[in-house]
Design a protein around this nucleic acid. Structure first.
Lengths: 189, 189
DNA sequence: GTCTATACCTTGATAGAC
DNA sequence: GTCTATCAAGGTATAGAC
């Protein structure tokens, strides 16, 4: 939180609302969390939530982001990039990020949530990857890697496949990495 | 609709409610469609909806299913199965099925919706595919093909990537089919 | 500027009349 | 079998206290 002139200091209530919202949204989703629940969790009056964040949607957008989970995902040697991408993203998402991703998917009916997920994926994954790939259709292949990534996160955290979730992560990542690598490698080489 | 003894005939109102619900849920999602909207679209009283289908959730489950879109998806020669799966599912989902899938994902907060999507994927895709695959980890590889499938449908219909959606379908399917095939082929062969 | 109390509207659901 | 009346929950806006 930046303080200083030109920006009002965030009150204790604001921080408490943020913390309660981050916890409840990640755990129970957007529609499963009421503004009154968040206010109760933060120990403040329900009206304060909209006072500080404009609306329930505004608070959701202020607290739920996958930018930190996606940043830097496609750095590293191209030859083993599939495995590297999956190791990083799954490790991060096994923390609180998994709930954040699931909450975002559950709130995709909100246009701003759609925009956030699309922008974050483009900015941190598809864009940087497309610039690094060689061979034909680099942009298309990078976008499909993004689709694969969403597919695995979906099956682990949004609509969890129990059999998949219980297996040793290393086995799952090794197998899925082969599929990612099939799009990362130059098909003409 | 089957008629006959032992089964009460479905009234005109029931059919009208079904039709309106299928259209509105697929177009505006679960939370974006109110029971009153559906009743208005069907030209009936709002109370009739819950009278006939128990609840909004009951009506949703009675009208939104991907069984028809997923059935028979993994039939055909193993050597080109990746391409065949994608051609079939994308063709079907470019019709009304795309909206149905998106609506189901948007309603995954409901446990019964989760169960339906998991069961349908297992019954029509993962199960039959696992029984056909040779080589190690057949079950794991089949589950990951399911994850890939969800990933593409997600990027085409749930959180649509405009660049991906506008490209010629053949290009997209050819490239993604390589990634599916990497899990279908026996890795030790 | 920060917080509280309160009221309003939409929506899912139900009870009971006809 | 169908409709009217009504309730509870929840998102939102506003008036006013401190």
């Amino acid at each position: 939180m930046r303080r200083g002139p030109g920006r009002p200091p965030s009150s204790h209530a604001q921080r408490a609302i943020r913390a309660a919202a981050a916890r409840l949204f990640a755990r129970h989703g957007y529609s499963g969390t009421s503004v009154r629940d968040i206010a109760a969790g933060a120990g403040v009056d329900p009206a304060l939530v909209n006072r500080h964040f404009g609306s329930k949607e505004g608070l959701f957008l202020a607290t739920m982001s996958v930018d930190e989970d996606f940043r830097g995902l496609v750095d590293g040697p191209l030859g083993e990039l599939g495995r590297a991408i999956l190791t990083r993203v799954v490790t991060r998402m096994d923390g609180p990020g998994g709930g954040v991703f699931a909450a975002l998917v559950g709130a995709l009916a909100l246009p701003e949530v759609r925009a956030h997920l699309a922008r974050s994926t483009d900015e941190h994954v598809v864009g940087p990857l497309a610039r690094r790939l060689s061979g034909p259709d680099a942009d298309l292949r990078a976008r499909l890697v993004g689709a694969q990534l969403h597919g695995l996160l979906f099956s682990l955290h949004v609509s969890p496949d129990p059999e998949l979730a219980q297996r040793p992560r290393a086995e799952v990542l090794d197998a899925y990495a082969r599929a990612l690598q099939a799009l990362i490698d130059d098909p003409t080489a």
